[in-house]
Design a protein around this nucleic acid. Structure first.
Length: 471
RNA sequence: GGCGGGGUAGCCAAGUGGUAAGGCAGGGCUCUGCAAAAGCCUCAUGCGUCGGUUCGAUUCCGACCCUCGCCUCCA
């Protein structure tokens, strides 16, 4: 059975067939961060969604090439640079590093390439020049360059493929930036923005004078440079459908670098936003969390990752602190099962295949039905626990179960439970308590339990003996 | 105003024209010196409301109510 994905272009679930005639190589572009601040949990939902796509394609055996842009020049960045007085690179470096740290904390696979917009100015300029040469872009006396939607459409191209647009009914007004008054039509968008005094030292020379790239052009320039003018998948948050992705299509296909009949991007995938505590995230509501806010509250990356991966990517998801507690409990359930499996497996070679992988694959093949995939995981946990309790799993079978889990976790990425090294003195205390219990000296046993608790360890008595566990 | 999502148990969340996955919480039980932990079992005659189609609808159609988002800052 093959993977099916919802393609925003067709607004339907389609079978995933790579452009590669061999059906093996897959080009994946995921819109990355604008490094002007720490990414918030909503951003992370989208990035984790991208990681899910990446990992699942890896799992399916495709040779994936993933590119994620780092937007390190834009209006907000320039504003913050002006406020802080820092050089551009110094300012963005901090948030870029934070982004990669967070990405790692959430156990996302690092994209193969993470190009910075500022390091591709030449490519951007070349693309704009090409659009100008093809008559789709026009420069203004001030030295800005705009993309002409009218000319693009005049050439037979459709604008408005990802969202239904009604330009007549569109409310135009206060949101049109005053520095863009020189556009020929409101729908036109900037490819290159002429330098203004507010830009400070943030500008580059260009055929149109000093200035900086527009918002959308970097993605077109960098994706086509690194993945070729026609590639398989382009991901982003749902808010990027319009105008960002729509404009990317216009620029990229307007440049006509694609082989005949080939689209810029074959499949567009968009992740829905999330709500936090049932409301749209906002700083004034106090429900605006960055990843580090949540880590500071004691939640771990894998707990946050698990919660972000509980709902289908196209559904608005309600992210709550209570949900994080539930994620913690759910992962503990998996961890317990794995711990027991490890003990049962020992060093035995795996024999036999668990049905887990098949059910899991079936769910994710269906447009990444992650809830169904978790359902398969937990049914497997229950089934495994039952067998373990009945001593119905021999070592090879337990090893096979672990192998199946590892396969599934290569996609989920919540990891195996951390192997905790129990310090010798703790082990000694546990053993001393066991001895006391055997001698029916429960007073001493309880005292030792308290002693362990004071040292940050708790004891779990199981039929197979006592186990120390970190509090 | 235009466009697009949602409304499924206390919370989160899948799903299907044939009688509701999974997780958390709750309840019961097992284990246990006691406890904790863990495990097992259990937990919606019901899927926003009202109509319609159908042998049968939560699932299809229509109307309505509520809710969220987008409409060129936005993951």
């Amino acid at each position: 059975m093959g993977l099916k994905l919802f393609n925003t272009l067709s607004r339907s679930v389609q079978e995933f067939v790579p452009l590669d005639p061999a059906g093996r190589t897959v080009g994946l572009y995921a819109c990355g961060p604008t490094v002007y601040d720490f990414a918030h949990i909503g951003n992370w939902r989208t990035f984790v969604f991208g990681d899910l796509v990446r990992r699942y394609l890896d799992f399916k055996g495709y040779a994936v090439r993933q590119v994620m842009n780092i937007t390190d020049v834009d209006d907000k960045i320039i504003q913050r640079v002006r406020e802080t007085g820092q050089p551009l690179r110094e300012f963005t470096a901090r948030y870029e590093k934070a982004f990669f740290d967070d990405l790692e904390a959430l156990n996302c696979r690092r994209p193969h390439q993470t190009p910075r917009a500022t390091e591709h100015i030449a490519d951007i300029i070349a693309l704009i020049e090409r659009l100008q040469a093809r008559g789709l872009a026009y420069a203004t006396p001030e030295g800005s360059v705009y993309f002409s939607i009218e000319k693009y459409r005049g050439g037979g191209a459709r604008y408005g493929r990802l969202v239904k647009l009604n330009f007549e009914a569109m409310r135009v007004g206060e949101r049109v930036r005053s520095d863009e008054y020189e556009k020929e039509a409101v729908a036109d968008f900037a490819l290159w923005k002429a330098r203004t005094p507010e830009d400070g030292q943030v500008f580059w020379p260009s055929p149109w004078g000093e200035g900086r790239p527009g918002w959308h052009i970097e993605c077109s320039a960098m994706s086509m440079k690194l993945l070729g003018p026609s590639f398989d998948l382009h991901l982003g948050g749902e808010d990027l459908m319009f105008p960002h992705h729509e404009d990317e299509i216009a620029q990229s296909e307007g440049a006509a670098l694609q082989p005949p009949g080939r689209p810029f991007v074959k499949y567009w995938l968009h992740g829905a936003h999330l709500l936090v505590e049932g409301r749209k995230m906002s700083k004034s509501l106090g429900n605006f969390f960055t990843l580090r806010d949540l880590l500071a509250r004691g939640f771990t990356g894998r707990e946050i990752r698990h919660l972000l991966l509980t709902a289908h990517y196209r559904e608005t998801f309600n992210f709550t602190l209570e949900g994080l507690q539930a994620a913690r409990a759910a992962l503990a359930r998996i961890d317990e099962c794995l711990l027991k499996l490890r003990a049962a497996a020992g060093a035995a070679p795996a024999a036999g295949e668990a049905p887990l992988v098949e059910a899991f694959t079936q769910a994710l093949d269906d447009d990444l039905n992650i809830s169904g995939a978790w359902g398969a995981v937990f049914e497997w946990v229950r089934d495994t626990n039952r067998k373990l309790a009945e001593n119905a799993l021999d070592a090879p079978a337990a090893a096979a179960a672990l192998a199946a889990w590892n396969r599934v976790d290569s996609v989920l990425g919540v990891g195996a439970p951390p192997e905790v090294d129990v310090p010798a003195e703790i082990t000694q205390l546990v053993e001393a308590r066991q001895a006391a219990r055997q001698a029916k000296d429960f007073k001493r046993a309880d005292a030792l339990r308290e002693e362990l608790k004071a040292r940050g360890w708790t004891i779990e008595d199981t039929p197979r003996g006592a186990r120390a566990k970190r509090l």
